[in-house]
């Protein structure tokens, strides 16, 4: 009976989820800090970071670049409210007041939306830039081949690999 081969488990790409882990670490440190200094601030933190939770949930990319992007912007939008709360009257009622304030939420969620905008807008821009780079390199290589043919004749292309056009 043939011996069954033990296939090694598929390796995860290096650095995959690394950014997300760093973000989670930062988030945990902030959460623990808030728990110690101002526990009621955790309400603002959890309500404010809801877009990030949604992004992590819907992002199927193993490297979670979209989630990182949304999380970073989301936290940037949350940070003014959170700093004001911790340095000011950090009470439970004040926390509920802030999370029910539409303007505060618009700022926080708007920042997360900017993260989404970046995630959606940058790939097409990158496609245009990469296309231009590739075309210019191909043109340079074809030019070099044409110069070789001018110097050495068609035979330099070999019997099968003649330059097309």
């Amino acid at each position: 009976m043939a011996k069954k081969k033990n296939n090694p488990p598929p390796r995860r790409p290096a650095g995959s989820r690394g950014g997300l882990h760093s973000l989670a670490l930062v988030f945990s440190v902030v959460a623990i800090g808030l728990l110690v200094t101002a526990p009621s601030a955790l309400i603002i933190l959890f309500v404010g970071m809801a877009p990030t939770a949604v992004a992590i949930f819907i992002d199927r990319d193993p490297q979670k670049f979209a989630s990182i992007s949304v999380a970073a912007m989301n936290f940037a939008g949350l940070s003014p409210t959170l700093v004001d709360f911790v340095l000011g009257a950090a009470s439970f009622s004040r926390a509920l007041e802030l999370v029910s304030n539409v303007f505060v939420l618009v700022v926080i969620y708007g920042a997360a939306a900017v993260g989404w905008v970046l995630v959606l807008a940058l790939p097409p821009a990158a496609a245009i830039v990469l296309g231009v780079i590739t075309d210019s390199r191909i043109q340079a290589l074809r030019k070099e081949q044409r110069q070789l043919i001018e110097v050495w004749g068609e035979d330099v292309a070999g019997p099968k690999a003649r330059l097309e056009g």
């Binding site: 950014g19 990319d61 490297q63 670049f65 979209a66 990182i68 992007s69 949304v70 999380a71 970073a72 912007m73 993260g115 970046l118 995630v119 807008a121 940058l122 790939p123 097409p124 821009a125 990158a126 496609a127 245009i128 990469l130």
Partner: peptide
């Protein structure tokens, strides 16, 4: 370009 764009977006956002 999808990969590169998202990566750039992540770095930029961070």
């Amino acid at each position: 370009s999808l990969m590169v764009g998202r990566k750039v977006a992540a770095y930029l956002s961070t």
